[in-house]
Structure formats: structure tokens, C-alpha cells
């Protein structure tokens, strides 16, 4: 029974991380209709920036957290200005694929830049907390608890930004009907920039939390990004509540499979899940009925 609770705790923690990773992806997909393949590298960047500021420069922890958010936003903004905007301007039919390829290029460059600056050896994120507390039958490590709280907090901030601010409404409007939003006076270009910066900031936080759980390495973000993609597809690309829900569900399932059958079967299971869901419901579990199928 103890293992059941251990699996539950680790599943929920990982789920929280997947959820904020997929929120970042889903935001961009929803508003721009493209996938940012550099999202994983942006996660990695967030983790390393915090490490560099706290351990490297010896500055206080909150400043490190702030720096990873700021650098994430900056990276997102640069990816928009240098790559995405220009590819969208080419007005070619296969812009989806071209944005993906170009952002993978950016991801490789970013990942390698990190490797050159920090080296390839795994590093320990300084913002770790030891100890645990008991909650009924659950033994929750403080580390996991803090990650979960921070993730939920991040989600709440994004949700209220999107739901209760003028800019948030403009972002959702652009995602739902771009031309109509432009007719209302929304500058789509600016919305796109803000969305990518927001997604970058979220990636920064996510990378920081992620690196507090596992160790820092230049490929830190790749695996979570691919899994976050799977979550987004299962949920229906662009559906934020769906992405959060599916992230927790699949993370719990993954944790259980990894415990039952060994760690190597976690990812194949996710892949099977997404194939089954897509055959059964091509627009995802909670996606709009409009099917992206020809």
C-alpha cells in the first residue's frame, strides 16, 4: 500500500510539471497555430539561468527565480521576432512544418550554447529542500510539495491573466478568430509576441522546477517537451484546461506503469495512448469538434 501512495505522490508531482510544460506549448499552438519545438530548450534555459544566478553569481534565490522567468520570456520573444514572424510572413502553405523545423534549429543551437557555457556534466540545482511531512497515509517530500504548489500557482496566474485581463481576452480572441480580433483593433503581431514571451516565461518556471527534481543537464527539457506534446495532442491541441487534466491523468498512469513494468515502458505507453486516442477521436479528448484532418 505504501508504494501506491509513493506512486501517487510522484505521479502528481510529475503531472504538475507536465501540466505547466504543456500549457506553454498549448498557448502558442492556440494563438498562432504553430508548434514551438524550442520549448524544451527554453525549459533547460530556465533551469540553467537559475543555477547560474544563484550558484554562479551567488545572488539570492528569488532573484534566480525572477531571472529564469525573464530569460524565458526573452528567449520566447527572440524566437518570435527572429524566426516565427518571418516564416509566417513568407505566407507559404507549409508554414506549420517550416516553423517546426526552424525552431528545432533554434533549439539545437540553444541546447549547444548551454552545453558550451555550463558543460555537459549533470549539475545540482541549488534550490532544493530536504525532508518530508506526513499527510494521513501519504509521505510527501517537501520538495515535491513545493513543486506542486508552485506549479498550481503558475497555472492560476496564467488562467487569471487569460481570463480577467484585457490582453488575455485579446489572446483568446486571436486564437478563436484572428481576423475578427484584428477588426476589433487587436494587433495580431503584438499578441503573438506576447504569447511567445508568456510561453517562454512559463517554460522558465517549469525548467526551474524540473531541475529541482532531477539534475540539470543540457538535454533536460527534451523529454518533458515531447511528453508535453503528447499530452497536448491527447487533450486536443490548444485546449488549456484539457492539457492540465490530461497531464495529471497520463502522469499518474505513467508513474504506475513505470512502477509495475519498469521505467523504460513509461514513454511507449504514452505513445500508445496518443495513437489510440487519435484513432478514436482525431481532435483529441477535449478538442474542438473541428477536425484537423483532410
Amino acid at each position: 500500500m505504501n508504494t501506491f501512495y509513493a506512486v501517487l505522490v510522484s505521479g502528481l508531482t510529475v503531472g504538475a510539471l507536465y501540466a505547466i510544460a504543456s500549457i506553454g506549448l498549448s498557448l502558442v499552438w492556440g494563438a498562432l497555430g504553430v508548434l514551438n519545438m524550442a520549448h524544451g530548450a527554453m525549459l533547460t534555459l530556465g533551469g540553467y539561468v537559475a543555477y547560474g544566478v544563484i550558484t554562479g553569481l551567488g545572488l539570492p534565490v528569488p532573484l534566480g527565480i525572477f531571472a529564469s522567468v525573464a530569460f524565458g520570456a526573452l528567449a520566447g520573444g527572440l524566437i518570435y521576432v527572429l524566426i516565427v514572424r518571418n516564416v509566417l510572413r513568407q505566407a507559404k502553405a507549409d508554414f506549420e512544418a517550416n516553423v517546426m523545423i526552424a525552431t528545432v534549429g533554434a533549439a539545437i543551437a540553444l541546447e549547444n550554447g548551454i552545453l558550451l557555457v555550463f558543460g555537459g556534466q549533470p549539475l545540482r540545482q541549488p534550490v532544493t529542500v530536504s525532508g518530508s511531512f506526513e499527510l494521513g497515509p501519504l509521505i510527501v517530500p517537501w520538495q515535491n510539495f513545493i513543486i506542486m504548489v508552485a506549479a498550481v500557482l503558475a497555472m492560476a496566474v496564467i488562467a487569471s491573466l487569460l481570463n480577467y485581463t484585457r490582453m488575455g481576452r485579446a489572446i483568446r480572441a486571436t486564437a478563436q478568430n484572428r481576423d475578427a480580433a484584428r477588426l476589433m483593433g487587436v494587433a495580431a503581431d503584438r499578441v503573438y509576441l506576447i504569447v511567445l514571451m508568456l510561453s517562454g516565461a512559463v517554460a522558465g518556471i517549469c525548467g526551474l522546477l524540473l531541475s529541482a527534481m532531477v539534475q540539470l543537464s543540457p538535454s533536460l527539457g527534451n523529454d518533458p517537451m515531447l511528453k508535453a506534446f503528447i499530452m497536448c495532442v491527447v487533450a486536443g491541441l490548444g485546449s488549456l484546461p484539457g492539457a492540465v487534466l490530461v497531464s495529471f491523468g497520463l502522469a499518474l498512469l505513467e508513474a504506475w506503469v513505470q512502477y509495475q513494468f519498469g521505467a523504460r515502458w513509461g514513454f511507449p505507453l504514452l505513445l500508445c495512448a496518443v495513437v489510440v486516442v487519435l484513432i478514436w477521436r482525431p481532435s483529441g479528448l477535449l478538442g474542438k469538434t473541428e477536425v484537423r484532418r483532410m
Binding site: A170, N177, L183, M184, V186
Partner: peptide, 19 residues
Amino acid sequence: DMLFPQMSVHENLLMGAFL
């Protein structure tokens, strides 16, 4: 119409007054 389908009536109206 080109409305924002996933928004409430109120929010659609608010979008009209975006500026």
C-alpha cells in the same frame, strides 16, 4: 458574424470595445 465562439456574450461585447 465571425464571433469568438468560446467566449461569453459579455466577453464578445467587451472585445468590441477593445480599444
